[in-house]
Design a binder for these strands. Structure first.
Lengths: 131, 131
DNA sequence: GAATAACCTATTGACACAGTAGGTAAATGG
DNA sequence: CCATTTACCTACTGTGTCAATAGGTTATTC
């Protein structure tokens, strides 16, 4: 289940893309347009900056802006950054996950197939597809 | 993310299907074969019984058994019973979810498309496909 | 130097997850 | 009838995440 972080994060990116005029966009404006608490958006926006998906600038005339063209962002990378993982099961989400039943597990192949389905869907879908 | 309830629940159903010889299968045996705590499986098995997916019988010779042929169970119905919902976002999981932005939401169409993808995948996949 | 806006740390209440503990009720075999 | 087996039931617990709020400090511009 995609949390508000992922959902709001995506809307933040769409807002940044739609209102991009070259200059920085203040979070206050985004919060108002998107009807999301600015305080909560700060958490989301920080992850985006830390993850290198957007950049911020302080002071008057400051705000946030995209660092790439919208068609260069996949929905998958945005969601993965926000959610930590988009893998549907713990066995696949964590590379170091240890499971003694790996070889005889009857469900693992299905999870893997489903995981690929999800992964492909979100990584093929671009931010530009949502504008 | 599918929780242990969903994952174990699926393995329980597979175990019941694989070891079906007409009579009831004690939970103790399933717990040992699947290497899952019997106590924890009790919670899962109760949901299955309450949901009408399996039936139980007390006393010696008792246990649990399927009520349908394995090809009549979809993975989707098993997971939905265990997880409550398999919808990827709150907006779609809850029928009564109120969102003032429904009409202008740029992400909703994508969530709907993805929701259908997930739904179709799991409801087309049958328990018999996992044996 | 005032205003603007990002950036930072901490806290909170609610809830779900992943179990565990300890019992009662029902069915069967001897 | 009674011991055994097995399901069935209620309650509890620790850990963690979610969703959000509060209250600051730093950086930048005019």
């Amino acid at each position: 289940m995609i949390s508000t972080k992922g959902r709001y994060g995506l809307r933040l990116m769409i807002d940044l893309a739609k209102n991009d005029n070259g200059s920085y966009i203040p979070l206050k404006d985004i919060a108002e347009r998107q009807e999301i608490s600015k305080k909560y958006l700060e958490i989301i926006v920080k992850k985006m900056v830390d993850g290198g998906l957007i950049k911020g600038s302080s002071g008057k005339g400051g705000g946030y802006k995209l660092v790439k063209k919208p068609d260069k962002y996949s929905v998958g990378e945005i969601l993965t950054l926000m959610e930590g993982t988009i893998s549907p099961v713990a066995c696949l989400a964590d590379k170091d996950y240890l499971c003694t039943r790996k070889k005889k597990c009857e469900t693992l192949p299905m999870w893997k197939e489903f995981d690929k389905l999800v992964h492909d869907y979100f990584y093929d879908k671009k931010l530009s597809d949502l504008l």
